[in-house]
Write a protein that binds this DNA or RNA. Structure first.
Length: 611
RNA sequence: GCGCCUGUAGCUCAGUUGGAUAGAGCGGUGGUCUACGAAACCAAUGGUCGGAGGUUCGAAUCCUCUCAGGCGCGCCA
């Protein structure tokens, strides 16, 4: 983390300087020093890095910024080996250039760290949980869930790369009224398949979806040789006894005929498996699938209520039990137990948070859609009331995805059935493009998803631009292998060692090339080569910044820039020129591949050898 | 009515906790392949940062007001 380290050093050195020379108290000095930035200027003429230190310090030191800038500049030139030169620009910026030697020397570290290049230990192994997607198990994932899946997984990868101990968790709402309704729908159609006319629940889930689940259940309990079904979920096992019945069974009758709870549990399992398959097909895998119902096992609910009563954070009013949310920063108090005695969804939220704390997580990340932003205060209130530092409960509110077709926004409505399913999107656009697209913007930006564009112009997707860079490198490696095998490759064997035997597996070949060679001082001449090396050097800072900002799109953006530099380099400089291999460039290209692969992995996007 | 988010090039978006001449991609325009893959490269074009005030050395960024859009304000989940 070059920038991060230099900024820290700059601040430290200035602080030391000020303590001796100025009469200011330490607190206000610290505040001032915190305002010092060290950034990459937009304009190349202003050097590789620039700082506003002199401008920030001018009011404290009561000296003209230009004068201060000169002093700092002299200090940087004499004390920093990373800096090749510096200059001062009005009104008081200090610009400096990173030393070429330093950049080239840095390359060795990339080869040594390889897959770990970009990682840091900022998280200090803190146990952190990211909860995301958590869509109800009563339907398939739609296009909107795709954004949370991509965002949550990439963000988890970023946390992991910053040294956090990350758990990706999916919360399954299998307890409340929605799950009950789903179970009833299942039971209703299940009975039909045994000849009973049943009334399908009013405002039930789409019948074709429920039927597909029932069909799967029947498939599982099919008896051999066409003997029908086991009917394991019937309360009266004499299957077929309904055949003469002409009466429609009402919901309450269904209850007497089918074990609704059992078939519901099985149905939800089936739905969860389907969801998991969808997510896996976009490279998202959860560490934990947490069932809401498990919170209520072993009298968990009763125990929690008792505990909350004892701590005086719930109270009774209007036959219901209320949580004193307002006292902990929420807008109003929230019901925990309805007047009918049923726990609310909020009751689960409380227990779930306590459960998370009990599992040792020090930091909780919730990724929610903008339609849930009212949750933030509620969750913080729970934290505050139960003793979990609310600062460690982070709710990331992602703006919603709007479907656009022919330039017009499409209202997504589950009832109208014009919901676009994630599975369909993945099939049409491909996982890589979907993953890249969904993290390409800040989560804070409402996203317009243009279906026509995604389908037709998927070749123009920036993800292919990046992957193409990777494929080109793989191709260079292959060309080197072929040329070497044919004995036609001309190269300096003091500079580069090539393996005697080449594996068929690209990764093995690559590992061999990296481990058998030294990257201490590759011969790089042109500005583009050094520029590319400089870009590689900045990668760890990007991983760190993406973590601090919780923004995966910074990785997307970096990848795009890196690919751009590479393509330019590739066009203007030949690695293999008429059978003559330029070893310095070849080494550089190998290192570019490491960074491309590492960054793509964070985004869950493939790094293809061919396209 | 109250709260959260957004408004930057024709379109989709960046703009690094206030920094220097506001940047990319796509679309459109004009160029580049007997040379490691042209899914690439180069050039030119494109802007009243929704609007109005204010804060200061300096504002797309912070404050106030205002206009427009999205979302949320249940003993639903």
């Amino acid at each position: 983390m070059l920038i991060q380290n230099l900024r820290k050093r700059l601040s430290d050195e200035i602080l030391l300087l000020l303590k001796n020379s100025s009469g200011e108290n330490e607190g206000s000095l610290n505040d001032k020093v915190m305002q010092i930035t060290l950034t990459i200027p937009k304009n190349r003429d202003f050097g590789d890095l620039c700082t506003n230190a002199a401008l920030v310090l001018a009011p404290v030191l009561k000296k003209p910024p230009l004068k201060i800038a000169e002093d700092i500049k002299r200090h940087i030139i004499s004390a920093w080996p990373e800096a090749a030169g510096a200059n001062v620009a009005a009104p008081g910026f200090i610009n400096f250039f990173i030393s070429r030697d330093y950049i080239i020397k840095n390359l060795e570290g990339i080869a040594i760290k390889k897959d770990d290049y970009g990682r840091n230990e900022h998280g200090a192994n803190t146990k952190l949980q990211v909860e995301f997607v958590s869509a109800n198990p009563t339907g398939s994932l739609h296009i909107g869930h795709g954004r949370w899946a991509a965002l949550g997984d990439s963000l988890s990868n970023i946390f992991a790369s910053n040294g956090f101990d990350v758990c990706r968790e999916y919360y399954i709402n299998d307890f409340g009224s929605q799950a009950a309704k789903f179970s009833l729908c299942l039971a209703s159609l299940y009975l039909r398949s045994f000849g009973q006319n049943t009334q399908y629940p009013e405002d039930g889930y789409p019948e074709d979806l429920v039927k597909s689940v029932v069909d799967q259940i029947l498939q599982e309990e099919k008896l051999p040789e066409g003997a029908g079904f086991k009917g394991s979920y019937l309360k009266n096992k004499s299957a077929g006894s309904f055949k003469t019945s002409s009466e429609y069974a009402r919901p309450e009758l269904i209850d007497s005929m089918v074990d609704i709870g059992a078939i519901g549990r099985r149905g939800i399992e089936i739905m969860i498996n389907r969801i998991a398959v969808t997510l896996k097909s976009m490279n998202v895998q959860f560490d934990e699938w947490f069932y809401e119902s498990s919170l209520y096992k072993n009298a968990g609910f009763e125990k929690t209520i008792k505990q909350l009563e004892k701590e005086n954070i719930i109270y009774a009013k209007d036959d219901a039990i209320w949580f004193k949310a307002a006292q902990y920063g929420d807008e109003k108090d929230r019901v925990v137990i309805r007047s009918g005695g049923e726990p609310t969804y909020f009751a689960s939220d409380i227990m779930y948070l306590i459960n998370k704390a009990g599992r040792g997580f020090k930091r909780l990340i919730y990724i929610l859609g903008a339609d849930h932003h009212g949750y933030i205060k509620r969750l913080h209130a729970i934290g505050k009331a139960t003793g979990f530092n609310e600062r460690n409960i982070e709710v990331i509110i992602g703006q919603l995805v709007r479907l656009v077709q022919k330039g017009q926004p499409v209202k997504m409505s589950k009832r109208k059935g014009n919901v676009y399913m994630l599975d369909d999107l993945l099939k049409e656009v491909g996982s890589d493009a979907v993953r890249y697209f969904f993290t390409a913007n800040s989560f804070n930006t409402p996203m317009d998803f243009d279906l026509d564009l995604a389908k037709q112009k998927s070749n123009k997707n920036p993800v292919y631009y990046i992957q193409y860079a990777h494929a080109r490198i793989a191709n260079i490696i292959d060309k080197v292998r072929q040329g070497f095998a044919a004995g036609e490759l001309d190269f300096d064997s003091n500079e580069l060692r090539l393996p005697d035997k080449w594996s068929d597996n690209f990764e093995d070949v690559f590992t061999a090339l990296i481990s058998e060679n030294t990257f201490k001082n590759p011969n790089l001449k042109s500005e583009q080569e050094v520029g590319l090396a400089k870009m590689l050097m900045l990668y760890p800072d990007v991983v760190y910044d993406a973590c601090i900002c919780r923004e995966p799109y910074m990785i997307n953006q970096y990848l795009y820039r890196l690919a751009g530099l590479f393509h330019y380099f590739y066009k203007h400089h030949r690695v293999i020129d008429a059978k003559k291999l330029n070893t310095g460039r070849f080494k550089l290209v190998l290192l570019v591949r490491i960074v491309l692969a590492n960054a793509l992995k964070i985004l869950g996007v493939g790094a293809p050898e061919r396209m």
